[in-house]
Amino acid sequence: MINNISVEICCGSLEDCLAAQSAGADCIELVTAHLLGGLTPSAGLLYKVKEKVRLPVSAIVRPRAAGFCYSDEDFEVMCRDAKEFARIGADGIVFGFLQPNGNLDYERCARFLDCVGDCTPVFHRAIDVVEDMLATAERLIGLGVKRILTSGGKENALAGAPTIRKLVQQCGDRIQILAGGGIRANNIAQVIAQTGVKMVHFSGTAYREDTSTCRNPNLNFGASVLPPNENFIVVNKNNISDIMTNI
C-alpha cells in the first residue's frame, strides 16, 4: 500500500501475478482474455496462483464477452465456477448480472451470492451501464456485496471521477469503491485526488512477441477484428446443418 492507497492489478497468467507481486501490488484480479474485458480464468490457473503468490486473489466469473445478461445455461456454469473457485481458495469472486434493459438483475445476483462461500463478493463494471449507479450501489450493499469496480459510467475513471466521488461519499465505509478503467501513470494521481478512493485497479499491460507462428504469417488463429461491444460469438445450429449437408 502506497500513501494509504491499495493497488489491484488485473492479471491473466501466473507470470502476470508474479510480476504484479514483484512490482508491489496489494492484490490481484485474475482473468483471461484481457482484450475482451476479462473472462473467467481456469481452475488450474487459480490453483497455481494461490499456490505460488502470497497476495489476495479475486477471480472473475464472466463466461463471454459483450454484456452481462446471460442465458440460463451460462448462469449454471457461472454458479459452478464460483463454487469451484471458492473451494480452491479464491479470496474474492468478481461478477455482475444485468437485465436486458441494462439495469441490475437483483434476483440473479442474490442467487449467485449463495455460491461464493466465504469469498469477498465484488461487483464489476457492469454497474457502469445501469440507469442509476447510486441507487444500484445501495441495492448491492443490501445484498452483501463488499466492493464495486467502476469507471463512473464513463470511458475511463478520470472522465467518470465526479460520479465515483459521489459513490465514495454516499457509500462511506459500507462498501469499498474501486476506481478502474484507463488508469495510467499520467492520470492515476488525478483519479485518486478527484474521486477520494482508497483503492485503484489497472492492468499495466504491454505487448510481448511469440514468434512460433511467424513461419506462416497468412494464418489467423483468432478474429482479425473484434465484434462490436454488444455482440458475442455463438455456435449457430443452422450454420452447422448447412455445412454438414455438404459432407
Rank of each mutant, 00 (worst) to 15 (best):
V191S: 05
R215V: 13
R80D: 13
S6M: 13
F123I: 02
P56A: 04
L46I: 04
L46W: 00
A185C: 08
L104V: 08
S224P: 01
A43I: 02
N246W: 12
A90I: 10
T150L: 06
K198S: 15
A135R: 03
A20N: 02
K154A: 11
I175T: 03
K146E: 15
G24S: 06
G38D: 01
V130Q: 01
D105R: 07
S224A: 09
L39K: 05
S224R: 08
E230N: 13
G92Q: 01
A189Q: 06
C109K: 10
A126V: 04
A161Y: 00
D16K: 00
I177W: 00
G24R: 07
A66R: 04
N103E: 12
E138H: 11
Y70T: 07
A19I: 12
I28A: 01
I183K: 03
P41Y: 06
E155Y: 00
M1S: 15
S6H: 15
G153T: 05
G160R: 01
L46D: 02
L140K: 03
T211N: 09
D74R: 06
E76S: 12
F232D: 10
V145G: 03
A65R: 07
L178H: 08
G172N: 11
A189K: 14
E209L: 07
C171I: 15
G222Q: 04
D16S: 09
F221G: 14
N239T: 09
A185Q: 14
G182E: 08
E51L: 14
V145W: 00
E230L: 06
Q190K: 08
G67C: 06
A110R: 14
P228L: 09
C115M: 13
A33G: 01
